[in-house]
Deep mutational scan, measured.
Amino acid sequence: GATAVSEWTEYKTADGKTYYYNNRTLESTWEKPQELK
């Protein structure tokens, strides 16, 4: 079936920290989303 993983994109900030952005909800988070675990 369809999965929600594709909504999240992993980015890195200029200082090398990783964060996650959800293209559907426009939410961003420092925590790894449940969908990616």
Results as ranks from 00 to 15, higher is better:
T9K: 10
T3V: 12
Y20F: 06
R24H: 09
L36C: 11
R24A: 08
N22E: 01
T9G: 07
K32Y: 05
E35W: 04
T13I: 02
K12D: 03
L26R: 15
K37H: 14
L36Y: 10
A2L: 13
E7H: 08
Y20H: 01
G1L: 14
A4R: 12
A4T: 15
K12Y: 09
E10I: 07
E27G: 03
V5M: 11
D15G: 08
T18A: 05
E7S: 05
A4P: 11
Q34E: 15
T3F: 09
K37L: 15
Y21D: 02
V5A: 12
K32S: 04
Y21A: 03
V5I: 13
P33R: 01
A14V: 12
R24K: 13
E10V: 09
E31K: 04
T3R: 10
S28W: 15
N22F: 00
K12W: 06
E10P: 04
R24N: 10
E31Y: 06
Y20L: 01
K12S: 07
L36W: 05
P33W: 03
D15A: 06
Q34F: 10
N22S: 03
L26S: 11
T18L: 09
N22R: 00
S28E: 11
S6I: 08
S6Q: 10
K37Q: 15
E31W: 04
G1N: 14
E31G: 04
E35L: 04
T25I: 02
T9Y: 09
E10Y: 03
E7W: 06
T25V: 01
T25F: 01
T3N: 10
E27H: 03
A2E: 13
T13P: 01
G16V: 00
T9P: 00
D15L: 04
Y21H: 07
R24D: 06
T29W: 05
E7L: 05
S28G: 12
E10S: 04
E27S: 03
T18F: 07
T13Q: 04
L36D: 08
N22G: 00
E35K: 05
E31F: 07
Y20D: 01
S28I: 15
K17Q: 08
W8N: 00
P33H: 02
A4D: 12
T18D: 04
A4K: 13
A14Y: 04
W8Q: 00
E7T: 06
E35I: 06
E31S: 04
S28L: 15
S28D: 03
K37M: 15
T13A: 05
T18P: 06
E27T: 06
T25W: 02
N22H: 02
E35S: 09
E31V: 11
A2Q: 13
E31T: 09
N23R: 09
N22P: 01
G16A: 02
T9R: 11
G16L: 01
G16M: 02
Y20N: 00
Y20V: 00
E10R: 03
R24W: 08
K32Q: 11
S6P: 12
G16W: 01
V5D: 12
Y21W: 08
E27Q: 09
N23S: 14
S6A: 11
T3A: 13
K17P: 01
A14W: 06
T29K: 07
T18Q: 04
T13L: 04
R24I: 15
W8E: 00
G1W: 09
K32F: 05
K17A: 06
V5F: 12
Q34R: 06
K32T: 10
T25P: 00
K12N: 05
S6W: 08
K37D: 14
Y21M: 08
E7P: 06
